[in-house]
Nucleic acid binder design. Structure first.
Lengths: 131, 131
DNA sequence: ATATCTGCAAATGGTTTGCGGAGGA
DNA sequence: TCCTCCGCAAACCATTTGCAGATAT
């Protein structure tokens, strides 16, 4: 049972939107709005379907932030962590040094086979903290 | 505007259920079923309302595991991390050594004020890995 | 006494899905 | 042509909420 993947303009634009919005870590709805600039007729269902496939194939990250009722998506698959500001609500990237290997620490401290992790910090961002 | 808290049997039993089910990291529905053994008439709405308050006041942890459509709850507020087995689906505790200070690493590597974090590892648990 | 809490049931809202038609290979 | 993908709209389902009565203090 071979499942051939097709390249559609919708899929391309969804990826493009994810990249354009990467700094805000968009939700499915935000991605859909962005794609509408190019494809006004795009449907939210299509966006969800594609995001789900991309997340399952590890092309993108799906982030479930505590307290938010919806998922955010991240095109940056390079190892990095996230920070959520409890004041302004922004979700930002944080890069830990390679010497601080989270997965490796988990492997050393448990007998499980660890594939990947999700780490989100919560607090006040630099800007909100100053005020 | 003072909001006085009342002690109700529902609240007590919800906490008791959370403790009894702590090893499985129960969902709201599971907590409700457990409480029904003592209070058959308990409503799911009451369970949700209490869990939400407890999570907001940091009495318990609310865990949003990737791919699961619902929250899990954790009474253990001592510092620890979680591991989700992608095969059997179990969510387990992992204890990292105090020397591996996740929050401190975040503070050092960013200019944000970090209050807490959520870290979940994904992979194959010891049992599933053996098979 | 009275303000909070509960049970009930309806509403909410993000996400999924069935279907018939469109379109990529 | 064939089969996957799309748009549409309804369905799903975890969670929230309005209301009237119950209850803790």
């Amino acid at each position: 049972m071979i499942m051939k993947k097709r390249l559609t303009v919708q899929k391309e634009e969804i990826r493009r939107a994810l990249e354009a919005l990467s700094s805000v870590h968009p939700t499915a709805g935000m991605v859909c709005e962005k794609v509408k600039e190019k494809i006004p007729g795009i449907s939210l269902g299509t966006v969800y379907r594609n995001l789900k496939k991309m997340a399952e194939s590890h092309e993108i990250l799906q982030l479930d932030v505590e307290g938010e009722g919806m998922s955010r998506y991240c095109v940056n698959t390079h190892s990095h962590e996230h920070f959520k500001c409890l004041s302004c609500g922004r979700l930002m990237d944080i890069h830990l040094p390679p010497t601080f290997d989270v997965d490796e620490a988990g492997r050393l401290l448990s007998e499980h086979k660890i594939y990947f992790h999700r780490l989100i910090f919560y607090g006040l961002c630099k800007d909100c903290h100053k005020r």
